[in-house]
Structures are given as structure tokens and as C-alpha cells.
């Protein structure tokens, strides 16, 4: 395994890091940075790492080593980050919302929380979206809402799993619109939209980046997006806000460090990440993978996480009894 890890590290270097000068010029805390990954190699977090880190390695003159510690929807890696990792600038982690917060909000056994972290920056956000099968009777979001109002709990809506962003988007929406869906959790985004496409469920609350190829091909119909403004790739799909529901949500991924991280190192990383997201080459690479850049740096990211934590806590306290009685 060690050999395989080295291979991966070498591969990372080869895919962009080689051009970087050996001496650290942009990052003074360390020559190399270990990135804890709470999910398996090849997953969404890994995709972000493979996209961002070659560019960041060049910006900062450091090399990156990914350490995969999958399990408990990221909680194993994040507990390690919060409780055991020394804040010496040598180790950071990819942090995914909402899982970063919902893990400990939903389970008392998970003991870390965001006050034990130093948030660095959010990089991408994949906005939420509601999709139905191409042959679904629901042509517009109003149709779906009418059905849900007429028969509370009769409209089945898939999500990517309990604790995931789509689950919380659905609940937040139910609260805002005062409707009740029958929520069906799946093992990830893929099975959720597949079930909608196959007609096993009425709709899937999902993410734009994931369902876009199917929407473009005409296999799925987008009813509403949960972003602040209309998306340029889906100009005809209204936002929830336009329709009068104050819900904007999605799944975000960024980087965080342990609490007590040196301020200088934090600033260098945040600036480096900002320059990466402004790089046209990076933007093109991100667009090719349908990743929606959403840079939120430094203290703004901290505030973003705190705001989300509050929303999710409220939502969970409200629906907890209902969900656990299933």
C-alpha cells in the first residue's frame, strides 16, 4: 500500500507539481502538505483534490500528499483533524458541507465541531435542483406542489441519503413551503436520480453538476434550482426564490485546517486558493468537470459554516423525531 500511496503522490506531482520550484516561496510553514480525505479515492472529494492541488502546488511551491481515511461520512478524518492533528501548517483537510456539520448534529457520538477547526476556503458549490423523469406528469414545479398539497406525504422525493445536502434541502423546502413530501433516502446522488428517471419515485432533489448531462440529453426535466440566481447552463429553470420560496442550498467543498493554525500559513493558503480559482486554466478545467466555482475565503468561510450549522441544527431538531420513528 505504501508503494501505491507513493505512486499516487508521484502521479500528483507529475500531473502539475513538477513545474513548481523546489524551495517554498509562497508557503513558509512546510515544504509539503498532507490533505486528509474523509472519502474514498475516486469520490467527489478526491475529484476536488485532483483538480485544485496541482494548481495550488504551483502557486505555493509545495507538494501535496493525499491521505484517504474514509468512513462514517467523513467523520473519521474530521475527528482526526479536530482532535489529533497538530496545527503546524503541515496537515489540512477537504471539508464538505453539509456533512461536516450534520455528522455531529445528528449523532452525539461524533464529538468534533467546527469551533475546533480553522476554515480556510470554500472552493466549489453544486447547487440543489429538483428533477423529474422526462415522461413525468409534472411539467412545472407548480404541478409538483399542487400534487403534494392535495395529498400530503403522497409525493415521493428522493435524496442522496440522510444527513446529505439533498435531504436537508428537502426538509428546508418543506418548512418554507409548508408541504410534506415522502422522503426516500438513497445511497448517493446517482441512485436517487436513476430512481426518478425510472419512475420509481416522483422526483429527486439532487445537484446540478450531477444531473446536468441527463437534463441536457432530455432524460430528466429540471423543475427548479435552489441557487440565488438562474444558472447560465439552465437559463429556463426558475430559482426557488423566484417562485416565492426562500431556499438556496447545495453541496459545497473546501479546505479547513485544525484550530490554532498559524495565521500566516492560513493567509498564504487562502490567498493561494483565491489565485487558483481566478486562474482561467483552472476555471476551464473546473467547467469541464461541471464544477461550479464558489470561492469563499477565510473568515467568510467560517461565517458560512456557522450559518449553515445553525440552519441544520434547527432543521434537525424539528424533524428528528419524525425521521427516527420510521
Amino acid at each position: 500500500m505504501r508503494k501505491l500511496v507513493t505512486t499516487a503522490a508521484v502521479a500528483l506531482l507529475m500531473s502539475g507539481g513538477l513545474a513548481a520550484p523546489v524551495s517554498a516561496q509562497g508557503y513558509t510553514a512546510s515544504d509539503d502538505i498532507t490533505v486528509l480525505m474523509g472519502f474514498k479515492a475516486g469520490g467527489g472529494s478526491d475529484a476536488l483534490a485532483q483538480l485544485v492541488q496541482p494548481f495550488l502546488a504551483e502557486e505555493l511551491g509545495v507538494s501535496f500528499v493525499n491521505r484517504y481515511m474514509p468512513g462514517a461520512t467523513g467523520a473519521i478524518a474530521w475527528t482526526q483533524l479536530a482532535k489529533q492533528v497538530k496545527p503546524d501548517g503541515k496537515t489540512i483537510s477537504i471539508t464538505n458541507t453539509p456533512m461536516l456539520m450534520t455528522n455531529y448534529i445528528m449523532n452525539d457520538t461524533i464529538s468534533y465541531n467546527i469551533t475546533e477547526l480553522t476554515p480556510l476556503a470554500n472552493i466549489v458549490t453544486d447547487p440543489g435542483i429538483a428533477v423529474v423523469a422526462a415522461d413525468s406528469p409534472y411539467q412545472t414545479f407548480a404541478d409538483l406542489m399542487a400534487a403534494a398539497t392535495a395529498d400530503p406525504g403522497g409525493v415521493t422525493v428522493g435524496n442522496s441519503g440522510i444527513g446529505g445536502d439533498d435531504f436537508f434541502t428537502t426538509v428546508a423546502f418543506e418548512r418554507a413551503a409548508d408541504v410534506k413530501f415522502q422522503k426516500v433516502p438513497f445511497q448517493g446522488d446517482g441512485p436517487s436520480w436513476t430512481a426518478a428517471m425510472g419512475g420509481q419515485i416522483d422526483a429527486s432533489f439532487n445537484n446540478v453538476g450531477i444531473t446536468y448531462p441527463q437534463i441536457k440529453a432530455g432524460n430528466l426535466r429540471a423543475l427548479v434550482v435552489f441557487s440565488n440566481e438562474r444558472l447560465k447552463e439552465l437559463p429556463d429553470v426558475p430559482t426557488a426564490k423566484e417562485l416565492g420560496y426562500d431556499v438556496a442550498a447545495g453541496s459545497s467543498r473546501g479546505y479547513s485546517a485544525p484550530a490554532g493554525f498559524p495565521a500566516e500559513a492560513r493567509q498564504q493558503l487562502v490567498d493561494g486558493l483565491r489565485r487558483v480559482t481566478e486562474n482561467p486554466e483552472f476555471q476551464a478545467a473546473a467547467a469541464a468537470q461541471a464544477m461550479n466555482i464558489d470561492f469563499i475565503g477565510g473568515d467568510d468561510y467560517t461565517k458560512f459554516l456557522q450559518d449553515q450549522e445553525k440552519v441544520f441544527t434547527d432543521v434537525w431538531n424539528e424533524v428528528k423525531a419524525d425521521v427516527q420513528s420510521n
Binding site: P70, G71, A72, T73, A75, I76, T79, M106, N107, T109, I110, G161, I162, G163, P185, Q187, V323, Q324, N326
Partner: peptide, 20 residues
């Protein structure tokens, strides 16, 4: 591990390593 529909940990004895 965690129940797929409720998120409740089952037979994990509070051990994070068994959550999945």
C-alpha cells in the same frame, strides 16, 4: 453501522470506525 433511512448508528458501541 448507520441505518440507511434514519441515520441512527446500530451496534456500533459508540465506535466511529463502525459507523459505515
Amino acid at each position: 453501522g448507520m441505518d440507511p433511512t434514519t441515520g441512527t448508528p446500530r451496534y456500533t458501541f459508540g465506535n466511529l470506525n463502525l459507523f459505515s
